[in-house]
Design a binder for these strands. Structure first.
Lengths: 95, 95, 95, 95
DNA sequence: CACTGGAAAATGCCGC
DNA sequence: GCGGCATTTTCCAGTG
């Protein structure tokens, strides 16, 4: 008998497992997305406009990203500074 | 002192709570999306092509949707049929 | 005098031309959409239900898409098959 | 023989014609949309950013709408003014 | 006039 | 690194 359509070989098992895991995760994603919608609905119910809410969230996201960018800037300068300090120390040793 | 920027009125509290809940949920969404990516990576690692995997998953999804669509088709035909029945009954009354 | 607001440099000319072309095309799109509405109105006038009409058109569209999807499926299988053939040939060379 | 599937009655003819006209128009819409994409591609080719282009077009659209709104405002005031003039004339006649 | 469904646009991701 | 593609999000018309 052919396994086509009802593959039960090792590879088939593995494939089925992977597909099911992905489908389960995508189901989860949908559930979370629905919860987001529910919160927006609740917000609307107490008079908050969805568009404004979105704008606020976007703003906060940008702010967080700006902070992250700033931090990596600081790190960059710090490491640059370290190099300079190293160079200076090296120079002193050599002199 | 102005509350601008540090609103602590009732509405402000509510707004902050809503925004935080949404942000938390979107964080969750991102996490789940990452898990999906991980599974795809794992699949790739054992030799499955992502494209084929996607095709399989899409197919299964379509199958599920086809069932749903069939059901709404049936409903549409049923309501159309009801209209016809109504017309016929009306015609009998008038004759 | 500043060109701000009445840019007439080469780049400005080009930009204006592009913007106008896009706006003209979007106007066309709106006109065609209106014509679609007119046909639906005409259909309604001779007793066809818009909902059913939509269902018919959607169905035909799906049918066309199914053909396209089938074709890409075939392509996908063919390329997968090619890979397998390649692997087998590689294995023979190595053995 | 049943006409189901190959309806050639008068109503069927009409239905088919309507469906085809709609499908033709939707095809046109798609073509125009593609042309828009082409213009955007061309714009990109000469260094204009799609996002900026979109922003410009949106701005111009808003401007046109503002003008229209202004015009209807003017009309409103004009008709209000006419009423006042009428009232004044009436009052003069009566006095 | 709010709501849902579908089209249009934006974003993010993948492969080259 | 970027161009194309898929997904996601946003917007708008139609409907009840």
């Amino acid at each position: 008998m052919s396994d086509i359509g009802h593959n039960s070989g090792a590879a088939g098992q593995q494939l089925r497992s992977l597909v099911q895991r992905i489908e389960r995760l995508e189901e989860e994603k949908r559930e979370v997305a629905d919860q987001v919608k529910e919160v927006f609905a609740e917000a609307k119910g107490v008079g908050f406009d969805k568009k404004v809410l979105h704008a606020i969230i976007a703003r906060r996201k940008q702010a967080r990203e700006a902070v992250r960018e700033f931090d990596s800037m600081v790190e960059l300068y710090e490491s640059a500074l370290d190099s300079v300090v190293d160079d200076v120390l090296d120079a002193e040793v050599k002199s």
